[in-house]
Design a protein around this nucleic acid. Structure first.
Length: 455
RNA sequence: GUGGGUAUAGCGUAGUUGGCUAACGCGUCGGAUUGUGGUUCCGAAGAUCGUGGGUUCGAGUCCCAUUACCCACCCCA
């Protein structure tokens, strides 16, 4: 039989055990933080009927979605976690308590060209709040506060959450008489930082047919910078000319005020008029996060307010606001930069029992006692040389090996070896469990990320 | 989807203007006598040089095609 060469599709991340453990530690940390804010942890199907996921129709989603036929069914893999949430809420609206707060950590699929930090299968860690009819603006302020909390708990410090408001932008473009092309303009303006004002100016005029005056107005609006208070003050100068703009300005102001109340330091969030990205269902507040040391890899976390997403599934108004961490991308970058905390390199077990006698019953008994005491324990059942058993313990990275030979069994004890120091002690099962617990306290509380501090 | 680049053992690479049995590091496996790993030393396995065709006495090296991957664009977590 010919051997099929094993391979993993590009754009799909597959990790070796130690890296997987670090990834899981990040997932666990995120779950803990999300839970602190009162979110229900939801899981929805990876696959949905195509007409559900594509209800909105058109755009990038349609181009990038994995879609296929199975029998007579037209199926698609979820493109994000937000659209399935909209479906879920619309479908179960009568059984849910609103505001409905849910978090979800799961894989999503996008059929695009893979690139560095850009995957075709990746994890998103989402939190969303869906309101019934109305949803208070304070929810828009709480989202980035949670992200701030989560990133901090992960061990990150060098990041900024950038905030903007689509109503503000749409209102501004309406003032210029550019309502129809607002989406295309936003996309161009978003590139300001990347390609510079001259090129954006040229593109606005040549590609979109704007007048020099219009392009100039846009660029001078986007040039508004400074502290959040400065930017908001400058925006006041535009007030009174467009209702949508005024509303957007009020919302943005409210988000900024309340963020401070949630304990987010001013340095970690920034009003930035150029950001408008994210999917096109956003209607108000939008967020984008940037890692200060790796601006080139794109936002590891974005989101915003979407007031109309459920309209494809129900007559009812179900506005939402949410944010999504691109976990796979975040992990990839941190790994590439060597920032994953080695303290969190967790082994599959804390103790590996090495039976030295033919009779493995004492080993099983010891394992049972250790497990009862809450120690993660594995037994090495295979018949190998002692040397090889030790080598296995070393490769797994277990902090302790428990050697169980005739002498130990005779005394009703076990030789517990600390793999890091090489020190070995003859202990009872209870004593061994205590020693393990005592030694591992620090390790469990370490953050998954060890960020280098800039000098 | 558009443009450019690259394809040599599990991974990372070397391979001169085409010339003998394709080299190196890491990793893997085995050994350095009996119940002690991570260091060291010795040894072994592992590649029809992405695939198919062509030029040539001769191709990993040149040409064409094809596939995969990488980079940029698009878009985005």
């Amino acid at each position: 039989m010919p051997i099929q060469k094993p391979r993993t599709l590009s754009g799909f991340m597959e990790l070796l055990p130690q890296k997987q453990a670090l990834f899981d530690a990040m997932v666990e940390t995120l779950r803990e933080v999300y839970a602190l804010y009162g979110f229900f942890d939801l899981d929805t199907p990876l696959m949905e009927a195509s007409e559900v996921l594509l209800a909105k129709g058109g755009g990038e989603t349609e181009k990038q979605i994995y879609r296929f036929q199975k029998g007579d069914n037209d199926l698609s893999l979820r493109f994000d976690l937000t659209v399935p949430l909209a479906k879920y809420v619309a479908l179960h609206q009568n059984e849910l308590a609103f505001p409905f707060r849910r978090c979800q950590i799961g894989k999503v699929y996008r059929g695009e060209r893979a690139q560095r930090g850009r995957f075709r299968e990746f994890y998103q860690a989402d939190i969303d709040v869906i309101g019934d009819g109305k949803l208070d603006i304070l929810n828009d302020a709480e989202m980035p506060a949670i992200i701030h909390h989560a990133f901090t708990r992960l061990g990150l410090t060098r990041f900024v959450i950038r905030v903007n408001n689509r109503k503000l932008l749409n209102g501004f473009y309406a003032m210029l008489g550019l309502t129809d092309s607002a989406g295309e303009i936003m996309r161009l303006v978003d590139k300001l930082e990347k390609i510079g004002p001259e090129k954006v100016d040229a593109a606005l005029r040549e590609d979109l047919g704007l007048s020099p005056a219009q392009a100039g107005d846009i660029l001078s609006f986007m040039a508004i910078q400074g502290s959040n208070a400065d930017v908001l003050a400058a925006l006041e100068g535009y007030r009174g000319r467009d209702g949508t703009f005024d509303q957007g300005l009020d919302e943005l102001g409210a988000v900024c005020r309340h963020l401070a109340a949630f304990g987010v330091p001013e340095a970690r969030f920034q009003v930035d008029l150029t950001i408008a990205r994210g999917l096109d269902y956003y209607t108000g507040t939008v967020y984008e996060t940037r890692l200060l040391d790796y601006p080139e890899i794109g936002s590891p976390c974005s989101g915003g307010r979407y007031d109309n997403l459920a309209e494809y599934y129900t007559e009812k108004q179900l506005p939402g606001v949410g944010i999504s961490i691109g976990l796979t991308r975040l992990f990839y970058v941190l790994d590439e930069q060597g920032l994953l905390s080695p303290e969190r390199l967790t082994a599959p077990a804390e103790v590996l029992i090495l039976p030295m006698t033919g009779d493995q019953a004492p080993a099983v008994e010891l394992a049972t006692a250790l497990r009862a005491a809450g120690v993660r324990t594995q037994i090495y059942f295979e018949e190998k040389k002692f040397k090889q058993k030790m080598a296995y313990a070393d490769k797994l990275g277990v902090p302790f090996a428990a050697i169980l030979g005739e002498e130990e069994i005779a005394q009703g004890k076990v030789a517990l070896k600390d793999m890091a120091t090489g020190a070995q002690e003859l202990l009872t099962a209870q004593q061994a469990a205590q020693a393990v617990h005592a030694a591992l306290v620090d390790r469990r509380s370490a953050a998954p990320i060890r960020e280098r501090k800039p000098d």
